[in-house]
């Protein structure tokens, strides 16, 4: 699954863990599903590796806000392309001060990348069958922005 960061395909250095292999990788750079993160919060915060969390729209993004400084990555899951909760999640997390990698995972395809970037995502895990080399031209197809958003908070009347 190609991972786009800063408009280039990069190797994914993170490991998504589950309940079974969490203990074995506790000191690696891991992405932990939200429920596991909540259950093992203290252990995870003390561990050596870098810490990431994966969250979806049914979970409460506000619960992450107290831990942003300890997180190096937050992956937001898009269960379907019609599910737009992740856009608001991204804006709330960036507004809360999160500066780590904000990764879109799940149904992440070309025609939503620009909106995702505007809302604060900087990493995009794109399914193999939906990846093509011209995907980078999705960014900035419409160069004028009326609204402020996370990438530039100024609406058109302040630009």
């Amino acid at each position: 699954m190609p991972l786009l960061i800063n408009r280039a395909v990069v190797e994914d250095s993170w490991l998504l863990v589950d309940e079974d292999n969490l203990a074995a990788h506790i000191n690696d750079d891991i992405v932990v599903p939200f429920e596991l993160f909540e259950q093992n919060l203290e252990t995870l915060l003390k561990a050596d590796g870098q810490l990431g969390v994966q969250i979806n729209g049914d979970q409460d993004v506000n619960l992450l806000l107290p831990h942003l400084a300890a997180l190096a990555l937050i992956a937001i899951e898009f269960p379907a392309f019609t599910d737009g909760r992740g856009f608001s999640f991204a804006r709330i997390l960036r507004r809360g001060g999160f500066t780590g990698q904000l990764r879109a995972v799940g149904d992440v395809t070309r025609d939503r990348l620009d909106h995702m970037q505007r809302c604060g995502f900087d990493a995009f895990a794109i399914p193999d069958d939906r990846y093509s080399d011209d995907i980078l031209s999705a960014f900035g197809e419409v160069p004028v922005r009326y609204q402020g958003s996370t990438d530039d908070e100024r609406p058109i009347f302040r630009q």
Binding site: G84, F87, S88, R112, H115, R118, Y146, Q147
Partner: peptide, 13 residues
């Protein structure tokens, strides 16, 4: 109109 047009956060409500 301007604020709603191509609003990135509210395109998939």
């Amino acid at each position: 109109r301007q604020w709603t047009t191509l609003h990135p956060e509210f395109a998939y409500m």
